[in-house]
């Protein structure tokens, strides 16, 4: 019989208690069990960064963790940032700087940048580039993303 493990995981402020198979990846828990499809799954082995979420405030790849490993943790996904009518300054900056084209990688960039900007409120272009070195984008060539991260820093400081 398939083993199920009871987990209690808080996602975007809501506590979810579920019985899950140990092999269930956190990315699949978020998308399939909770229906939060903002977290995208690209490579599923820890290279592309599309599935980045925050776990207890720290960025991590949700495809290289089992949901059972984060029992008791607080997760934040891209849905926690803002809504279409009330965007997070980082989302506004991505919009204004045209920092996305197809948008597949964007949730991962946003969750990576949101953690980074908390500790680094005024990055240079070089620092912003380094901050996103764990995320792949196949459309933009990264230039606009770097500019968006810098613009977001200014917007967040003004808030």
């Amino acid at each position: 019989m398939t083993q199920k493990v009871k987990v209690a995981i808080t996602v975007n402020g809501t506590l979810y208690e579920r019985d899950v198979e140990p092999r269930l990846l956190l990315s699949d828990f978020i998308r399939h069990d909770l229906g939060l499809k903002g977290t995208h799954v690209g490579c599923e082995h820890g290279l592309c960064g599309a599935c980045t979420v925050l776990i207890d405030g720290h960025s991590a790849r949700s495809c290289t963790l089992f949901a059972v490993m984060v029992d008791g943790s607080e997760i934040k996904t891209v849905e926690s940032l803002g809504t279409i009518d009330n965007m997070h300054p980082l989302q506004e900056a991505f919009h204004e700087k045209h920092a996305l084209q197809c948008g597949f990688c964007t949730p991962g960039f946003l969750m990576t940048a949101v953690e980074y900007l908390e500790g680094n409120p005024n990055p240079t272009a070089e620092q912003a580039r380094e901050a996103i070195d764990g995320n792949f984008c196949r459309c933009t060539g990264y230039e606009n993303i770097v500019e968006a991260v810098q613009l977001a820093a200014k917007k967040m400081a003004a808030h």
């Binding site: 790849r61 963790l65 070195d133 764990g134």
Partner: peptide, 9 residues
């Protein structure tokens, strides 16, 4: 070592 997201875990 890899990237921040991986060093965090």
């Amino acid at each position: 070592i890899a990237h921040k997201q991986i060093r965090n875990r």
